[in-house]
Design a protein around this nucleic acid. Structure first.
Length: 467
DNA sequence: AAATGGCCCAACCGCAAGTAC
DNA sequence: CGTACTTGCGGTTGGGCCATT
């Protein structure tokens, strides 16, 4: 049993950080086995905590801080030693996308690993990727993290606090339009992973306050929307232009990749109405979205990464990178240009509009459209669709969002989908997003993962070294 | 074989939050 | 309520090791 920790701190001259008896004799540098043994014995006897008393009662010439660190990082039981497994590496990357440089929190998710280990790992191998110009986060992680932040920000009501470390809490949703509800409008968070998991598009729909429904199980709702989902293989436009009714949104509704001729800046004057099914409205690397209101197309650009964090910047850059590597750029310079333009201000959300309309939001949209022809008009997409900036969304769509979120999240899968790469069984790994969800798509080019060195199961050590 | 450079990791430092007095 | 102290966290540093030249 543990004994009571002797506490002699009430004696004078015990503060090692100011001139005292300890300071001159406090040792620094690597720990010796003898010191380790003393510390282990001490902790086994008295337990953890009260670290400043350790040097005083154990005879160690180390400050309490140093003792705590030594114990936590090297001596405490159940510490895992050795290199990170591929599984652990993936978890770290995933957690970093979600948490930023919260090493301690990440360590709490990795039993036996310390924050210092994770930090070192990140600062060496992962940063090496960054320096090499390779993406830090695989596409799946980007999607997961985006969704995670959506949920974190809104469900838990943790607005971005600019005073936080820029690397610790991405302002992903700081400008997200939180006031986007009207009784006849459906807003949905869409989990693209479900495209992968089951060929069904899980949309969470809240048609009316306190009356949440899901696309699943609903047979009487008509939605019009366009979306854009970046998968491993390609950027996949999604749409339900076929006036999809009923239980979800299966693979057949995923349109083939953009044909180069489908959108072109030369063929689409800014104000012309583009047929809804003709193209993808938002090419932002994640999930772009547009809504269709009275046959007019509007892009929704909810996100503006001001006060960008490292993560966020990386996400944006990676989104662009993904797009480029999926040859969107080469296939359609206009769309690519839109992507460049929009990628710095959008993240993933798909907003669905009920086809039955005549609502506040719609009015706001139309108002925006009709009045926004001035020089400060929001940028046009490649298809001439109008982008509704965050200001419009926030200011004009003045309906409570919080309730909707609760409803949405009630319908949301209770657990975050497990990333495919967490599946350690080599034979039954889930296919990356986009493969099984595009049965009629042309044979895929080398996947983004492959091209960018994101092969599942490979070690970071395989990456090229930096010159 | 020696020099050099890069990587890795343990440890330190400063700061901030929490707690006790 | 203010101050002192403890603890924890994240950034940074420095030394050892190893590969390359």
């Amino acid at each position: 049993m543990m004994r009571t920790i002797p506490n002699n701190e009430d004696n004078n001259n015990n503060n090692e950080e100011v001139g005292n008896d300890y300071e001159g004799s406090l040792k620094k540098g690597p720990w010796t086995p003898d010191e380790d043994a003393i510390l282990i014995d001490y902790v086994n006897t008295y337990g953890e905590g009260n670290w400043n008393s350790v040097p005083k009662n154990s005879g160690l010439s180390r400050c309490g801080k140093s003792c705590r660190l030594r114990w936590a990082n090297h001596l405490r039981p159940n510490l895992k030693k050795g290199a990170f497994s591929p599984e652990e590496e993936r978890i770290i990357v995933d957690l970093h996308a979600k948490l930023g440089n919260k090493w301690a929190r990440m360590a709490s998710q990795l039993p036996g690993r310390t924050d210092n280990e994770i930090k070192n790992f990140w600062n060496t191998r992962i940063k090496r990727r960054e320096r090499a110009g390779l993406p830090i986060y695989p596409p799946e992680v980007i999607r997961d993290a985006t969704l995670y932040h959506l949920r974190e920000e809104q469900y838990f009501e943790k607005p971005y606090n600019s005073s936080l470390s820029s690397s610790s809490f991405p302002p992903l949703l700081s400008s997200y339009p939180k006031k986007l509800n009207a009784s006849n409008h459906y807003h949905a968070l869409v989990s693209p992973k479900k495209l992968n998991a089951s060929n069904h598009y899980h949309a969470l729909v809240n048609p009316k306050k306190n009356q949440p429904i899901s696309l699943y199980g609903s047979s009487s709702n008509l939605f019009n929307y366009h979306g854009f989902v970046v998968s491993n293989n390609s950027a996949q436009p999604v749409s339900n232009d076929y006036q999809y009714y009923n239980n979800g949104f299966n693979a057949s509704s995923i349109m083939p990749p953009l044909a180069p001729s489908s959108v072109s800046s030369s063929q689409t004057p800014p104000d012309s109405v583009t047929p809804a099914s003709s193209n993808v409205s938002a090419v932002d690397g994640f999930i772009g979205a547009s809504s269709k209101v009275n046959s007019e197309q509007y892009e929704v650009a909810p996100f503006s990464p001001q006060g960008n964090s490292g993560l966020l910047g990386a996400l944006v850059v990676e989104g662009q990178s993904i797009l480029r590597n999926n040859k969107i750029k080469s296939e359609d310079s206009t769309v690519a240009a839109a992507a460049e333009k929009s990628s710095n201000k959008r993240k993933s959300i798909v907003i669905m509009e009920n086809a039955e309309r005549g609502t506040t939001v719609e009015s706001a949209l139309l108002k925006k459209k009709n009045s926004g022809k001035s020089s400060n008009e929001t940028p046009m997409s490649s298809s001439g669709k109008k982008q509704i900036g965050k200001e419009a969304s926030l200011e004009e769509m003045d309906v409570s969002w919080d309730d909707d979120l609760c409803s949405l999240l009630n319908n949301f899968p209770t657990e975050m989908p497990t990333p495919e790469w967490y599946s350690t069984g080599g034979d039954n790994k889930a296919e990356p997003l986009g493969r099984e969800s595009q049965p009629s798509a042309p044979p895929p080019a080398p996947t983004v993962d492959q091209e960018l060195g994101w092969n599942v199961g490979t070690s970071w050590n395989n990456m090229p070294s930096i010159c």
